[in-house]
């Protein structure tokens, strides 16, 4: 029984000091959980601490690969809004590229 931090982690350090088992450690390119130490906080807290403070939806998953924080659950940003965001980012990127290549 252990949780896992995946690549969408933004290295914000928030989870690390909260873990009752010191299972979380800083690593490159992102923080990691030692599966041998993680108990999913059973016996210590009602809620897994790392996934209760993590601001990034989907950055922490369980053993079945299911995200503890589902898309939209923390930011209120729906999948539809997210698509709009990606389009905006792409447009900015393309504009920058065009400016560069003239």
């Amino acid at each position: 029984m252990a949780l896992e931090i995946i690549e969408s982690c933004v290295n914000c350090y928030a989870c690390e000091p909260l873990c009752p088992n010191e299972a979380i450690y800083q690593a490159s390119p992102h923080f990691l959980i030692d599966p041998d130490k993680c108990t999913e906080c059973a016996g210590d807290y009602d809620d897994a601490q790392c996934s209760s403070i993590c601001p990034i939806e989907g950055a922490i998953i369980d053993e079945l690969g299911v995200a503890l924080n589902l898309p939209g659950s923390l930011t209120g940003i729906s999948a539809e809004m997210l698509a709009k965001y990606q389009a905006a980012v792409e447009a900015t990127y393309r504009a920058a590229l065009e400016a560069k290549t003239g």
Binding site: T75, G76, I77, L82, K84, Y85, A88, V89, A91, T92
Partner: peptide
């Protein structure tokens, strides 16, 4: 919108 914040989007 390009900041990707709730308000921005």
């Amino acid at each position: 919108p390009e900041h990707g914040t709730f308000y921005g989007l």
